[in-house]
């Protein structure tokens, strides 16, 4: 499914030079918290096995947008979304799509590492067991090992799988959360400022990990850190006041931004 989207003059979507399969397409997505509108008609394409970064000043709606992709906003009673988020030819915002199924397919890693108050092993094994992906025993052990390896954590924790997940360091906890997300075998992993609570070394580790992961997963990452977007992302979208101001190839975006606002932002004039 290779689509080239025509975008005459519109800065909101773009078609990359090289063709990629589309994972999700977002059209005219609007969202309200009660009376207050937080997203004003977002159009965005998310390409398979690429990293898409969402940047912008705080309160610009980038996290809200991310949480629409797996309908985490459903948990907020006052939130109401309109528009299309297409995946597998279905609008995942519609009531016909089971949000639990969606979340299995679109996993999420949060800003603050939030391992469950269980053992490291259980943190990873818990959801796959619920989804009946593996049966208890050897199969489960293998999945846990595979996921922890994929998250680059195996060597550090293989001797202490019974320890509580909360006993790990911040960076390790975040990789545990990534392992936990991988273990349910999603297609997309959403990351909401995954390194903002971490030290620079842990951040570097996670950024490397993201490069590894994009072979198997589509990644959408929200970051407040433009250097990070420049380092990890293939594509970058700049959000401002609930709108996408510019969406482009990362290198293009940072070298020759189309929009004045984007340029102001990436040159640090506001934020």
């Amino acid at each position: 499914m290779t689509t080239k989207l025509a975008s005459p003059g519109a800065p909101v979507t773009f078609s990359p030079e090289t063709t990629h399969d589309l994972e999700m397409t977002v059209r005219d997505l609007k969202l309200w918290y009660g009376e207050k509108q937080a997203l004003h008609g977002i159009d965005l394409d998310i390409y398979q096995n690429n990293i898409t970064a969402l940047i912008g000043p705080s309160g610009c709606g980038k996290s809200t947008f991310l949480r629409c992709l797996n309908r985490m906003n459903d948990l907020i009673p006052s939130a109401r979304a309109e528009g299309e988020v297409m995946m597998e030819g279905k609008n995942v915002l519609s009531k016909q799509v089971d949000e639990v199924a969606l979340r299995k397919k679109v996993g999420m890693v949060f800003q603050k590492p939030n391992p469950f108050p269980k053992s490291i092993y259980e943190n990873v094994a818990y959801a796959p067991r619920m989804h009946d992906i593996v049966s208890k025993g050897k199969e489960q052990d293998e999945l846990v090992e595979r996921s922890l390896r994929a998250a680059g954590l195996w060597d550090e924790v293989k001797d202490q799988l019974g320890q509580p997940g909360t006993s790990l360091s911040g960076g390790q906890q975040q990789r545990l959360c990534i392992a936990r997300a991988i273990a349910v075998q999603p297609s997309v992993i959403l990351m909401d400022e995954p390194t903002s609570a971490l030290d620079p070394i842990s951040t570097a580790t996670i950024e490397e990990l993201m490069h590894e992961l994009k072979r198997d997963f589509t990644i959408v990452v929200v970051t407040h850190n433009m250097q990070q977007a420049a380092r990890v992302a293939d594509y970058t979208a700049f959000f401002h006041l609930g709108e996408v101001i510019e969406y482009n190839d990362t290198a293009m975006m940072f070298s020759t931004p189309d929009q004045k606002k984007t340029e102001d932002y990436i040159t640090g004039r506001y934020g």
Partner: peptide
């Protein structure tokens, strides 16, 4: 029980009841 626990579990595609039984109540 911090909301991050619930979100962490629900984001893995578990149902409300599974989240309550396996994450919220043990905590």
């Amino acid at each position: 029980v911090p909301n991050a626990m619930r979100e962490g579990s629900l984001a893995l595609g578990t149902t409300r009841a599974e989240t309550i039984r396996s994450v919220v109540l043990p905590a």
